[in-house]
Amino acid sequence: TFVALYDYESRTETDLSFKKGERLQIVNNTEGDWWLAHSLTTGQTGYIPSNYVAP
């Protein structure tokens, strides 16, 4: 799992909003700078900017 370093507000319907400190499970990280992730807090799935999270 990864932890959010910053808050992120989604800009498209495929993005995932999250708050700093939220735990995220990475589903697919082969898309370059945008990873498909599942929030362990909200249960939602969407794309996140990879530079906003850390292991």
Rank of each mutant, 00 (worst) to 15 (best):
residue 55 P to C: 08
residue 9 E to R: 07
residue 1 T to C: 14
residue 46 G to W: 01
residue 7 D to S: 08
residue 2 F to G: 02
residue 11 R to L: 12
residue 36 L to F: 12
residue 26 I to S: 04
residue 19 K to F: 08
residue 8 Y to C: 04
residue 19 K to S: 08
residue 50 S to L: 04
residue 11 R to M: 13
residue 11 R to W: 08
residue 28 N to L: 10
residue 4 A to F: 01
residue 37 A to P: 00
residue 25 Q to K: 13
residue 37 A to R: 00
residue 33 D to A: 13
residue 12 T to I: 10
residue 7 D to W: 04
residue 38 H to K: 15
residue 35 W to M: 06
residue 25 Q to S: 09
residue 36 L to H: 04
residue 4 A to W: 01
residue 15 D to C: 13
residue 45 T to G: 05
residue 40 L to M: 10
residue 42 T to Q: 04
residue 19 K to Y: 07
residue 50 S to W: 09
residue 9 E to N: 10
residue 7 D to N: 08
residue 47 Y to I: 06
residue 30 T to L: 12
residue 53 V to H: 03
residue 1 T to R: 06
residue 30 T to R: 10
residue 8 Y to M: 03
residue 49 P to S: 05
residue 48 I to L: 04
residue 50 S to C: 12
residue 14 T to K: 13
residue 38 H to C: 14
residue 41 T to H: 10
residue 23 R to I: 15
residue 17 S to I: 04
residue 30 T to N: 11
residue 54 A to R: 11
residue 53 V to C: 04
residue 20 K to Q: 10
residue 6 Y to T: 06
residue 52 Y to G: 06
residue 38 H to R: 15
residue 25 Q to M: 14
residue 55 P to W: 10
residue 50 S to Q: 07
residue 18 F to S: 00
residue 6 Y to Q: 09
residue 36 L to T: 04
residue 5 L to P: 02
residue 54 A to H: 08
residue 14 T to P: 05
residue 30 T to C: 12
residue 10 S to W: 03
residue 36 L to R: 04
residue 16 L to S: 03
residue 7 D to V: 02
residue 7 D to H: 05
residue 18 F to E: 00
residue 50 S to I: 06
residue 5 L to D: 02
residue 3 V to F: 09
residue 36 L to S: 03
residue 47 Y to A: 03
residue 35 W to D: 00
residue 9 E to D: 13
residue 33 D to C: 14
residue 12 T to G: 14
residue 34 W to E: 04
residue 14 T to M: 12
residue 2 F to K: 02
residue 32 G to A: 14
residue 28 N to C: 12
residue 18 F to Q: 00
residue 55 P to M: 10
residue 41 T to P: 03
residue 15 D to Q: 15
residue 29 N to T: 14
residue 13 E to H: 11
residue 48 I to Y: 01
residue 23 R to C: 14
residue 36 L to A: 03
residue 39 S to W: 01
residue 23 R to L: 15
residue 55 P to L: 11
residue 18 F to W: 01
residue 6 Y to G: 05
residue 13 E to L: 11
residue 50 S to E: 04
residue 44 Q to L: 14
residue 25 Q to W: 14
residue 20 K to G: 04
residue 47 Y to K: 06
residue 11 R to D: 11
residue 24 L to K: 00
residue 49 P to A: 04
residue 50 S to K: 14
residue 18 F to N: 00
residue 15 D to T: 09
residue 52 Y to N: 03
residue 42 T to C: 03
residue 43 G to L: 06
residue 25 Q to H: 12
residue 43 G to F: 07
residue 3 V to L: 08
residue 46 G to Q: 00
residue 20 K to A: 12
residue 11 R to I: 12
residue 17 S to V: 05
residue 31 E to K: 13
residue 5 L to T: 04
residue 50 S to M: 08
residue 53 V to G: 03
residue 12 T to Q: 11
residue 24 L to D: 01
residue 17 S to R: 06
residue 11 R to S: 13
residue 45 T to C: 11
residue 15 D to P: 02
residue 41 T to N: 11
residue 50 S to R: 13
residue 48 I to H: 01
residue 52 Y to I: 06
residue 30 T to V: 10
residue 24 L to I: 07
residue 6 Y to P: 00
residue 19 K to N: 06
residue 24 L to G: 00
residue 42 T to N: 06
residue 9 E to Q: 12
residue 18 F to H: 01
residue 55 P to A: 11
residue 46 G to S: 01
residue 41 T to S: 12
residue 9 E to H: 10
residue 24 L to E: 00
residue 37 A to W: 01
residue 20 K to R: 11
residue 36 L to Y: 12
residue 4 A to S: 05
residue 29 N to M: 15
residue 36 L to V: 07
residue 15 D to N: 11
residue 2 F to L: 06
residue 8 Y to I: 01
residue 20 K to M: 08
residue 7 D to R: 03
residue 15 D to A: 10
residue 24 L to Y: 01
residue 17 S to H: 05
residue 45 T to H: 07
residue 15 D to G: 15
residue 17 S to K: 06
residue 25 Q to A: 10
residue 35 W to F: 06
residue 31 E to H: 14
residue 55 P to K: 09
residue 45 T to M: 12
residue 53 V to F: 07
residue 1 T to A: 09
residue 40 L to A: 06
residue 31 E to P: 10
residue 36 L to E: 04
residue 26 I to V: 11
residue 23 R to K: 14
residue 7 D to Q: 04
residue 37 A to T: 02
residue 23 R to D: 05
residue 18 F to Y: 02
residue 31 E to F: 13
residue 32 G to W: 09
residue 29 N to K: 14
residue 55 P to S: 09
residue 9 E to W: 10
residue 45 T to F: 10
residue 51 N to F: 10
residue 8 Y to R: 05
residue 38 H to D: 02
residue 52 Y to A: 14
residue 44 Q to C: 10
residue 1 T to S: 09
residue 30 T to P: 09
residue 13 E to S: 13
residue 25 Q to F: 15
residue 15 D to V: 11
residue 6 Y to A: 09
residue 55 P to H: 09
residue 39 S to P: 00
residue 26 I to L: 07
residue 54 A to P: 05
residue 12 T to R: 14
residue 22 E to K: 01
residue 47 Y to Q: 05
residue 12 T to N: 15
residue 8 Y to E: 00
residue 49 P to Y: 06
residue 16 L to R: 02
residue 13 E to Y: 09
residue 43 G to A: 05
residue 43 G to N: 09
residue 30 T to H: 11
residue 48 I to A: 03
residue 50 S to H: 08
residue 32 G to R: 13
residue 7 D to C: 06
residue 45 T to Y: 11
residue 19 K to Q: 08
residue 25 Q to I: 15
residue 6 Y to V: 07
residue 35 W to C: 04
residue 10 S to H: 05
residue 20 K to Y: 05
residue 52 Y to W: 08
residue 34 W to S: 07
residue 54 A to T: 13
residue 1 T to Y: 15
residue 53 V to E: 02
residue 37 A to N: 00
residue 51 N to C: 15
residue 52 Y to E: 01
residue 44 Q to Y: 09
residue 35 W to T: 04
residue 43 G to I: 01
residue 11 R to N: 13
residue 44 Q to R: 15
residue 30 T to D: 13
residue 54 A to D: 07
residue 4 A to D: 00
residue 33 D to R: 12
residue 51 N to D: 10
residue 50 S to A: 13
residue 21 G to C: 07
residue 50 S to F: 08
residue 4 A to L: 05
residue 9 E to K: 09
residue 28 N to W: 11
residue 21 G to L: 03
residue 48 I to P: 00
residue 26 I to D: 00
residue 6 Y to I: 07
residue 49 P to E: 02
residue 6 Y to R: 13
residue 36 L to N: 02
residue 18 F to K: 00
residue 27 V to M: 14
residue 13 E to V: 10
residue 54 A to C: 11
residue 37 A to D: 00
residue 31 E to Q: 14
residue 38 H to A: 09
residue 42 T to K: 04
residue 53 V to T: 04
residue 40 L to P: 09
residue 31 E to S: 14
residue 2 F to W: 15
residue 35 W to L: 08
residue 15 D to K: 09
residue 11 R to V: 14
residue 37 A to M: 10
residue 19 K to E: 05
residue 3 V to A: 04
residue 41 T to Q: 10
residue 30 T to I: 11
residue 53 V to S: 02
residue 49 P to I: 03
residue 54 A to Q: 12
residue 54 A to K: 12
residue 31 E to N: 15
residue 33 D to H: 13
residue 8 Y to L: 03
residue 29 N to A: 14
residue 27 V to P: 05
residue 27 V to K: 08
residue 54 A to Y: 10
residue 33 D to E: 13
residue 51 N to I: 09
residue 31 E to W: 12
residue 6 Y to S: 07
residue 48 I to V: 12
residue 40 L to W: 09
residue 44 Q to N: 12
residue 44 Q to A: 11
residue 8 Y to P: 00
residue 3 V to I: 14
residue 1 T to N: 09
residue 6 Y to L: 08
residue 8 Y to F: 10
residue 55 P to Q: 11
residue 20 K to N: 04
residue 53 V to R: 01
residue 25 Q to N: 09
residue 11 R to G: 10
residue 15 D to S: 09
residue 22 E to L: 01
residue 54 A to V: 14
residue 16 L to G: 03
residue 9 E to P: 05
residue 48 I to M: 03
residue 19 K to L: 08
residue 1 T to G: 06
residue 50 S to G: 07
residue 10 S to V: 04
residue 20 K to C: 07
residue 47 Y to H: 05
residue 33 D to M: 13
residue 55 P to I: 10
residue 19 K to P: 01
residue 22 E to I: 01
residue 11 R to F: 10
residue 30 T to A: 13
residue 47 Y to D: 02
residue 47 Y to S: 04
residue 54 A to M: 13
residue 5 L to Y: 03
residue 52 Y to Q: 05
residue 27 V to D: 07
residue 52 Y to F: 12
residue 32 G to N: 11
residue 35 W to P: 02
residue 40 L to T: 07
residue 15 D to W: 08
residue 20 K to S: 07
residue 1 T to M: 14
residue 24 L to R: 00
residue 36 L to G: 01
residue 17 S to L: 03
residue 35 W to R: 02
residue 27 V to Y: 12
residue 7 D to A: 06
residue 16 L to K: 02
residue 2 F to P: 00
residue 22 E to T: 05
residue 27 V to H: 08
residue 24 L to W: 03
